[in-house]
Computed example of a mutant assay.
Amino acid sequence: MGSSDEENERLAHPEFWDQRYAQAEGDRPTHEWFRNFVELESFFDRRLFKTRSPDTNPTLLHLGSGDSDVPVGLWEKGYKDQLCVDFSTIVVDLMSKKHYSMEGIKWKHADVRHLDDLPEKSIDVAFDKGTLDAMIHGSPWNPPDNVKDNTSQYIREVKRVLKDDGVFLYVTYRQPHFIRPLLGCEGTDWEIDMDILGDGSSSFAYHGFILTKRS
């Protein structure tokens, strides 16, 4: 694994992403890592549009939003209460300027492991595409301590800010049997559902996890 794992480890640090986003050109996202809004629309249709339609005005939190087109896609569907957080100040600045006219989406600098400005039980829908993935490196069978520490802090924060009837939607390219133990870290008690998100053009499947608090 050598260098590729060293590269993976860099993904957990804002400096890597600052450098990446600083290379942005015009309207092209520099790093829609996987699955843009159009490719996720059927997942959102089942797990968001049908259960929390825009007219219920849910508060959406995008965790590690980067320069993804998902918030804008949801805004165009009518979701006008969205907060996008990222630990790269460069991408927060970039997206704030690019979409300044879109009332109802805010971009903010924050570390998803410490969402200190967000009150407990204030979010209806939390969404992650690849942010948890970027915290993971090393052996998937026996993750290093810093992976377990970082992911646990993060998942517990998501649970803290989520309303009792809220939902955490998480899209990953990693294998479910490696992800489930990280999602079910100490201090959480999720009901976990999962959709397989095939893309039709290849046999490679992504997975969409749907996490709710046990009543």
Rank of each mutant, 00 (worst) to 15 (best):
H109D: 10
K148Y: 04
F168P: 03
K80G: 09
K80I: 07
G130T: 05
A134R: 03
L83N: 05
R160Q: 03
P140K: 01
L94K: 13
W75L: 09
D149R: 14
D165L: 08
M102S: 02
G78H: 08
S96R: 04
T131M: 10
P119E: 12
V72P: 08
E157A: 06
R160L: 11
V112P: 03
D124A: 07
A126C: 15
R180L: 13
V112Q: 01
Y154S: 02
H137R: 06
G138N: 08
D149A: 12
Q153T: 13
H137Y: 15
K121G: 15
H177D: 09
L83W: 11
D111G: 04
S68A: 02
S96V: 08
V147L: 09
W141E: 07
S101I: 15
P181G: 01
Q82G: 10
S96W: 07
V92F: 03
I155N: 09
S96I: 07
K98S: 11
F127N: 11
R113E: 01
R156K: 15
V91F: 08
K77L: 11
L162Y: 08
P176R: 12
H99A: 04
D165V: 04
D117N: 06
E186F: 12
E186N: 15
H137E: 09
I155K: 10
S68G: 08
F178I: 01
D69F: 03
F168H: 06
G73Q: 07
T172F: 03
G73C: 10
K159S: 07
D164F: 12
G184W: 04
Y173F: 15
F178V: 00
V158E: 03
L115G: 06
V147A: 05
L162H: 09
L83S: 11
H177M: 05
L118N: 00
L94T: 14
V72Q: 14
V70F: 07
P140G: 02
V125D: 04
R113L: 00
C84K: 02
D81G: 06
W75V: 11
C84F: 04
R174G: 15
K106M: 08
M95C: 15
V92K: 01
K97H: 09
C84M: 02
R156A: 06
P144M: 05
C84Q: 02
H99C: 08
V161C: 09
V167F: 07
K80D: 00
S101R: 14
T151S: 14
K121D: 11
Y100S: 01
L118H: 04
N146E: 10
L74E: 05
Q82S: 10
I123E: 04
H99F: 12
V112L: 05
G104K: 04
